[in-house]
Amino acid sequence: MKLSPGLAETIIVHAREEFPNECCGLVAGRDGVATRVLPAINTEGTPFMYVMDPREQMDLMEQIEDSGEDLLAIYHSHTRSAAYPSKTDVELAFFAEPLYVIVSLQDENTPVIRAFHLERSAAEGEQITEEPVDIS
């Protein structure tokens, strides 16, 4: 996935704004290149969990589809752990196509963004596949 430095910064700023709670949102794109970041509301509002508001989720997905873009990624922050999917992230990964982008603020001065394909119904050990994020 290609992510411009500006869009990467949008995700990081969102994560910092919501800190210590997790943030979440969507990344729209075309042909693997991110075109927009769409921040959403984490209805849980906790440092340990995110659940996107379902109505907003549907609205944003339709907005992306109507504009001819693809839903490239679903992003959320890890405020105290690495940018790697947790057991809960995998268990709740209902969407096989979009990437799951995680921004970690574990080191607050050096945010880390990584992306993964998650397959909740795959065999253990085969559920997480990292995809490179080209921030340039």
Partner: peptide
């Protein structure tokens, strides 16, 4: 009917 799996997770 609309089926809408959540976008959710947690650390």
């Amino acid at each position: 009917l609309l089926i809408l799996p959540a976008m959710a997770g947690g650390q």
